[in-house]
Write a protein that binds this DNA or RNA. Structure first.
Length: 534
RNA sequence: CGCGCCGUGGAGCACCGGUAGCUCGCCAGGCUCAUAACCUGGAGGUAGUAGGUUCGAUUCCUGCCGGCGCAACCA
């Protein structure tokens, strides 16, 4: 995916008019897994996230609370960052679009597009809803029975306003040519097909400014207008890395981005409008846009599923609640293993508990417990000095290096659920099966040397698993990696998939994990399925 | 006929033109190092439906039925 040592990845920036929900978290975690993986592949990663603050909704939300927009967005940014930190998101930068660096870059950019002759002024007339602060199409109004579908009691006004427009309609052919030449520009495939048919059906010029607002970025060649939120939002990807600043060297190094991770609903902005804007300004295009799916809420009793929304009686699941109730690792594991990143997924508390218990408590956590307990019980934690070890015995015929190759591809193509599925079914299953086949707890009474050989292999399994799950469950992975004193291994921060094949010498293999009464404390205590739902 | 997605054992998913796999759950057996965990085996599906293409379709095409997204607090 990346052609050089650097890897620039972004997520969509979020409207801070409400706290993040599990869907936004899904996106950030998916991007984070990719960022962590790329770091493990020794790429110099720059992982950008941020908030989209130059919107009417934000100033309205602030107004309702009786505060100025600035302190409001700063406080929201603080709250978002709190959640991202709790979820172990490893972003390198977080941009707020109200920051000066963004304003400066936006103005330079819109000027460049203006200079390229792609911006013109046009009067726009239509029915305006004060409730929505937006124009309504005649069709919408007609279908709603003569009023705004969202604000039936608010009067519609006939309004005429002069705005600036971007000549998006000029770019259809160039966009289609780009999709053709770069098949991976839009992923997954279903999104790509959607956009191609959209562009083929014809693009219309888009309004890129609004008149009479003070919260927003002024249009440099007409200070009465502010830049419309969509035009400015997309620009965060370049303003955050220094486009338009005094020193653009960082921008020169990082751009173009390797991938924009976004929700499937905004693919059209990223795959049509954004590349057209960049073409106009003479900048290169991002290498890939990945439109992930949505997470729906499900009621296990009725089988009904729906898109989360504050207006529904069930309310919204707060990511922080799940993190506090279970753990960030459990949160990440659920969404990455159960929801295909490119498609849609479902969430329910019942299933969350099931997945947690079987995948984390019973399989992953229990393997850790039984392995360490035996090492301590039979050898006081010191495994050094085994005479002969069949290093591949624990794999039971599994071709580990082939698997690692497959996993690399799966992760790079965002097929996280498949990757995790294979780690669990192939590697964890092999390790657990190995114990049941070799019966080290019996060998401990009859053949200590053979028992030690088995445990040395299990320690190796722990090490391999630690590395494999590092992008997904960074905390658990570190615990696994630090359970033993491995000889001559790279420090945790630098361990990557390439190290899986570098099996350490067992000469000084020792358990160094914290123990309570001779055994490790459960990494994932089982949870009561029914209690979890409340 | 606006656009698009989806419909596979109780639940969630996968694969593939040649008579269905995986995870969870359930049942039985094994084991006891381990978080009543682990391992093995089993029950359970005429793949929404009606046609078509084919030597043969769950897999390709069409119609129909059903669910959903594309407008809104919200990704």
């Amino acid at each position: 995916m990346s052609d050089a040592g650097r890897f620039y990845i972004t997520t969509a920036i979020d409207y801070p008019n409400s706290r993040p929900h599990i869907g936004t978290a899904f996106e950030k975690i998916g991007a984070d897994v990719q960022a962590r993986f790329q770091r493990m592949e020794d790429r110099s990663v720059h992982f950008l996230m941020g908030n989209d603050e130059n919107t009417i909704k934000v100033s309205q939300a602030a107004e309702r609370l009786g505060v100025e927009p600035r302190p409001y967005v700063d406080d929201m940014a603080r709250q978002f960052l709190e959640v991202w930190k709790a979820l172990e998101i490893s972003q390198d930068d977080f941009i707020q679009t109200s920051e000066p660096r963004h304003h400066v870059g936006c103005q330079k950019f819109i000027q460049a597009v203006h200079d390229a002759g792609d911006i013109y002024k046009k009067a726009y007339a239509g029915l305006y809803c004060d409730g929505c602060e937006a124009f309504k199409t005649e069709k919408e109004v007609e279908e709603a029975g003569g009023h705004c579908p969202n604000h039936p009691n608010a009067p519609l006004r006939q309004v005429e306003e002069e705005n600036y427009f971007f000549k998006l309609s000029d770019y259809g052919d160039r966009l289609l040519a780009h999709y053709e030449e770069h098949p991976n520009f839009i992923q997954p495939e279903s999104r790509r097909n959607e956009i191609i048919s959209l562009v083929k059906s014809g693009l219309q010029d888009v309004s890129i400014s609004r008149k009479g607002f003070t919260w927003g970025i002024p249009v440099p060649f007409d200070p009465d207008q502010t830049i419309y939120v969509w035009f400015d939002a997309l620009l965060n990807y370049i303003t955050a890395i220094g486009y338009g600043s005094d020193d653009e060297s960082r921008f020169q190094t990082l751009w173009p981005a390797d991938v924009h991770v976004i929700g499937k609903d905004i693919t059209r902005f990223h795959c049509a409008l954004w590349p057209a804007m960049l073409m106009s300004a003479g900048l290169s295009l991002p290498k890939q846009v990945f439109g992930h799916g949505f997470v729906y809420r499900k009621n296990e009793a009725t089988g009904e599923s729906w898109k989360e929304s504050k207006s529904r009686p069930e309310g919204v699941v707060e990511p922080m609640d799940l993190v506090q109730k279970f753990s960030a690792e459990a949160f990440r594991y659920y969404f990455m293993s159960q929801c295909p990143f490119g498609g849609d997924g479902e969430f329910s508390f019942e299933r969350f508990a099931d997945v947690y218990n079987s995948g984390l408590a019973d399989t992953l956590g229990n393997l850790y417990s039984r392995t360490l307990t035996m090492c301590v019980k039979y050898f006081d934690g010191r495994l050094e000095g085994a005479s002969s070890v069949d290093a591949n015995a624990w794999l039971a015929g599994l071709d580990l290096s082939a698997l690692v190759g497959d996993l690399r591809t799966l992760i790079e193509t965002f097929q996280y659920n498949v990757a995790l599925h294979r780690i669990w079914n192939e590697v964890l299953a092999a390790a657990n099966g190995y114990i049941n086949t070799t019966l080290p707890f019996k060998l401990a009474k009859t053949d200590l040397d053979a028992c030690r050989a088995v445990l040395i292999n299990l320690a190796e399994a722990v090490r391999v698993i630690a590395i494999l799950i590092k992008p997904f469950l960074p905390g658990t992975a570190e615990t696994f990696y630090r359970a033993f004193q491995f000889e001559g291994q790279p420090p945790w921060e630098q361990v990557g998939y390439a190290d899986i094949a570098r099996r350490p010498d067992a000469a000084t293999l020792t358990v160094v994990a914290p123990l309570v009464g001779g055994k490790p404390a459960p990494l994932f205590p089982k949870i009561d399925t029914k209690a979890a739902a409340s």
